[in-house]
Design a binder for these strands. Sequence first.
DNA 1: CGGGTGATTGATGTGAGTCAATTCAGGTGG
DNA 2: CCACCTGAATTGACTCACATCAATCACCCG
Lengths: 241, 241
Amino acid sequence: MDSLEIEPSLNFCQACAVRNRAICADLDEDELGLLNAIGRRKRLQAGEQLLWEGDDAIIVANVVEGVLKLSTQTADGREQILGMVYPSDFLGRPFGETTPYGVEAITDAQVCVFRRTDFDRFAREHPRLEHKLLERTLAELDRTRRWMVLLGRMNAEQKLATYLVETAERLIPANCKESELGDERSLTLPLSRQQMADVLGLTIETVSRHMTKLKNDGLIGLPGRRELTINSLKALAERGG
Amino acid sequence: MDSLEIEPSLNFCQACAVRNRAICADLDEDELGLLNAIGRRKRLQAGEQLLWEGDDAIIVANVVEGVLKLSTQTADGREQILGMVYPSDFLGRPFGETTPYGVEAITDAQVCVFRRTDFDRFAREHPRLEHKLLERTLAELDRTRRWMVLLGRMNAEQKLATYLVETAERLIPANCKESELGDERSLTLPLSRQQMADVLGLTIETVSRHMTKLKNDGLIGLPGRRELTINSLKALAERGG
DNA sequence: CGGGTGATTGATGTGAGTCAATTCAGGTGG
DNA sequence: CCACCTGAATTGACTCACATCAATCACCCG
């Protein structure tokens, strides 16, 4: 791997935006200092690739800011998105030989990068960190398995409705209580139609058609290409089965 | 210890068939004794259910013998199989509130079960075990993500070919070197056609049709309903993309 | 005001689902 | 040993949802 852009070596961890949510949350001051010493901040522009599928697993990282996608290519060149990672999520393959998926920034992003070997050693020496990583991996496995049901058993409309509901829930957290205007939501979609198709195992045309169908059925509004309003989260969730 | 007395409460772990492959592999004698104390063996008949989706996560387990399936129901009553577990695999949801999938024995099976709370405590106190569990969970996540590509992007023939190749590889391990008759394999399928359909996100009819198609194309032989011969593993893998 | 990309819409094809009939294998009991 | 029963597997006819191919539209840059 060519040189990571290295920023001056402050203790970033202490001021880190995801300090309390990422896997480093349970570390004490000293441990944090050690972790800080082996990690580097890296900024990514939207569209920039951080890891390539099949490469040696050189680095792992924490997401500090932005959204990235994990994806893989099929033999015939199409793409299947395996997952999206958000701030405080972990990515890469610790204790592994090769990176099992490509990682690309969807939005401008900031990540906290570690050489995998450094991270592996640190993790083995700090069970609290390893425990956090385990909990996170177990949760990710659960989520991934739920996604299998979507891919294996849902039709296009159900896939789309489920995706929109989930996206709304991830992007509009508990900051505004649902009291506010009950069931309505409005947000900017992080993905293009093509990317949504790649997440859902569909084609761009099918995504587009069913978006307009959901709109015509009065479940959602589409004020702009990337803008979405959900009229009733509950009704939309019902469409997802 | 008095050598004439036969210890009635055996330490199962020491004689365990999967002793060296399961997550307990790195434990020393003392730790193994402690683990043994909180676990117990349980036999399951083919078709017997061990865990129900959505139940409180009361137990976790190691597979000692046999094959089990992890699955979930869709709203309209169909099933999606999320994964198969084989001897030495771990199942259940440590550090979690509810069991995210149902577990049913496909063949007669033997598992080593723990009360989840006991297991959680033991794991937190024994980082070597927790590390093993982490490695296993990471590997399982990789495998699950690869399966997403199958579900999201492959057609029926590719799914089936891929499944047969993978099954052959899991059931015919390195015991007989590939030198033996090169590329040919012959095995007993662990799943019924319906179960294969549930794994692959297909219907039983589609599975059946493409099985006969692969046979007519000379890639496989079907001497009996559950019997399979693969004429060329390589050629079959190519069909899978 | 054009050019370019992404999104939408339309026409058509096809692969997998659905429904239904038939065959097959395994087990049971006369 | 064979007739029968049962559930699984196969096969066929038909439908339909999604993919494909192609044309148009809308927005965002300069």
